[in-house]
Design a protein around this nucleic acid. Structure first.
Lengths: 186, 186
DNA sequence: TAGGACATGTAATGCGTTACATGATTAT
DNA sequence: ATAATCATGTAACGCATTACATGTCCTA
């Protein structure tokens, strides 16, 4: 059966299996679904499409219009099987990776005084408020459409993202209050 | 004043400014503090130390023992200034990046049935439960020591991490119940 | 006195990003 | 008819990781 899929390979394969046909469509689908927990830029998507095609997990055909090349893909039965195998992989969880420059700034904000720290937390809060907008406007409607298409899980995952940012907003508000008090005490 | 620091540069510089002296000490400090929101492996740390030294933001000297080389660093005044400038950077927030293979699996778990989806959520929950252990055992005690050393922010940031994983555990428990119900309904 | 843990680094690989290139379609 | 946007991709770079190399100290 070959090596297990990389996560990025599986992401592209999975979106093809859910009906995204071309690199561009996959890129759009990523923006409306995976984006907030598995970012994928176009160059990776096109590279993965080629690799998956070479492995026989998807099958591409040309569908050019005029001088404009265009290649569309479908998952093969082998691809569907590989996706299921990847989903049920090892019970040993891969780690959640978080990478947040604002949290990093906050960690080192001691050198700029309490007011400077409060500013960084406010920036964090506004960022998550904007993310909540994106969830309401783009991600949750797309998940709702996926549900109508028979896929229940995208909606659960989208709710995770929204509630995560609700948590962040709440945490920021609390810390802003605490830091303001520490500032007054000093 | 030169280009603004990269986040990774700033992370290393900041830890040196907080008293971590050698590459190894920085690596230990990362494991007990930044790790969960800004991972840094030894090769990056050593590379950044060299770069920061070249920029005059830290100053290294040899402190070998026997045939064993060892180089220790201190932040220069210019380094402290660069760190403050980096902390107060643009009000336009850099995005929080999340990258979670388990969430990705869950997103595509429709192909393996409700029971398969529940399994993936259980794996996610156990992962965050283990992270909570790590917070209690390593990260929060280190943050407490930092507070005693006059640095308040690490403790706030550590609490962010703990509460984040508490949120994840809670979300998983709720979704496990919901998916179990959907499974019974089908 | 040998094995393991602690400590300090380097080399090589590879993934993901930024920047770029180019054709088609729509709007004004 | 010209600009803007949609659509499809490639090339090059750089950061971060994996794997490795090596010395020193502790302990049984």
């Amino acid at each position: 059966m070959g090596d297990p899929l990389s996560n990025t390979s599986a992401a592209v394969l999975g979106l093809v299996a859910m009906g995204a046909r071309s690199g561009y469509e996959i890129s759009r689908a990523v923006d409306r679904s995976l984006r907030f927990f598995w970012a994928l830029a176009p160059p990776q998507i096109y590279a993965e499409l080629k690799r998956l095609d070479g492995l026989g997990l998807i099958e591409g055909r040309d569908e050019a219009r005029g001088a404009r090349r265009r290649r569309v893909y479908d998952a093969t039965p082998a691809g569907a099987a590989a996706l299921r195998a990847w989903v049920t992989a090892d019970a040993d969880p891969s780690p959640l990776e978080l990478r947040d420059p604002e949290l990093l700034r906050l960690f080192f904000a001691g050198s700029v005084g309490p007011a400077g720290a409060v500013e960084r937390v406010e920036v964090m809060r506004r960022r998550s408020e904007r993310m909540l907008e994106a969830f309401r406007r783009d991600i949750e409607p797309a998940a709702e459409r996926a549900r109508e298409g028979g896929h229940e899980l995208p909606q659960h995952v989208a709710r995770f993202g929204r509630e995560l940012h609700e948590f962040v907003v709440d945490w920021c508000a609390r810390v802003e209050r605490e830091l303001a008090e520490e500032g007054r005490a000093a």
